[in-house]
Design a protein around this nucleic acid. Structure first.
Length: 224
DNA sequence: GCGACAG
DNA sequence: ATCTTGTCGC
């Protein structure tokens, strides 16, 4: 898969924040896709022992959830973990992994936030802009925002608010299981994003894309 | 000053 | 992320 937009990664914290403000204008928050047949899940794990990041990409056929392709990449971490600047730590290895896959997915589900971010530019948005591809942010915990209690049944959801703005949805993917935090990445509406997360999570809390990418990075982490 | 803070 | 018992809120 080919990168559509490049920028420097060896930058200061201030420059990174300025870049987020600048790129946030380019995010498209309406459905800009036709047929979604291939969906990809991405995840990154950190190995304390080797100070390396392990990035994994798994491409699934959306209709059958069958694995089409998967790849992992190991790389030294070059940026610290700072809430709000997550993408500057995790994207470099993830870009390499995505560049190496042969099939271009129609949608990428990210482990982390998208629009639900202090500068409205979480990892999912960043990845979407770089590859000019529809992305969804699906986090296990929230970065910021307030919300009312969510119903206990699969499909129940409530808006995630910040500064009088709906920045995402808190979505229950399974009955009586902790909800996930869904937000726009790029080229998709919040409504469609939730529908896809729900569709891709028929049995577990997380969408199959994320779950399989998670599984893959953990296998590599144990194997080394 | 204190708590919150994607992974 | 990862380490982990009893404790707290609904």
């Amino acid at each position: 898969m080919k990168i559509q937009f490049e920028h420097a990664w060896d930058i200061s914290i201030t420059q990174a924040q300025e870049l987020q403000y600048k790129l946030a204008h380019q995010v498209i928050c309406t459905d800009s896709f036709s047929n979604i047949q291939l969906v990809a899940g991405v995840d990154v794990a950190y190995s304390k022992e080797t100070d390396e990041l392990i990035a994994a990409v798994v491409v699934l056929e959306s209709a059958t959830l069958k694995v089409i392709e998967s790849v992992t990449i190991k790389e030294k971490a070059t940026f610290p973990y700072i809430p709000g600047l997550f993408s500057f730590r995790e994207l470099p290895p993830l870009l390499k992994a995505l560049e190496s896959i042969k099939t271009r997915p129609d949608l990428i589900i990210c482990d982390g936030q998208g629009y639900a971010h202090p500068r409205r530019f979480g990892l999912a948005c960043h990845l979407g802009i770089i590859f000019n591809i529809p992305t969804i942010g699906c986090g296990k915990t929230k970065l910021l925002g307030e919300y009312c209690s969510v119903g206990n049944l699969r499909g129940d959801h409530t808006p995630l608010l910040h500064d009088n703005e709906v920045i995402g949805n808190v979505l229950r993917t399974q009955n009586n299981v902790k909800p996930v935090f869904v937000s726009i990445g790029h080229k998709i509406s919040l409504k469609s994003a939730c529908e896809w997360v729900l569709k891709l999570a028929p049995k577990y809390r997380l969408p199959e894309t994320t779950r399989q990418a998670d599984q893959l990075v953990n296998t590599v982490l144990k194997t080394q």
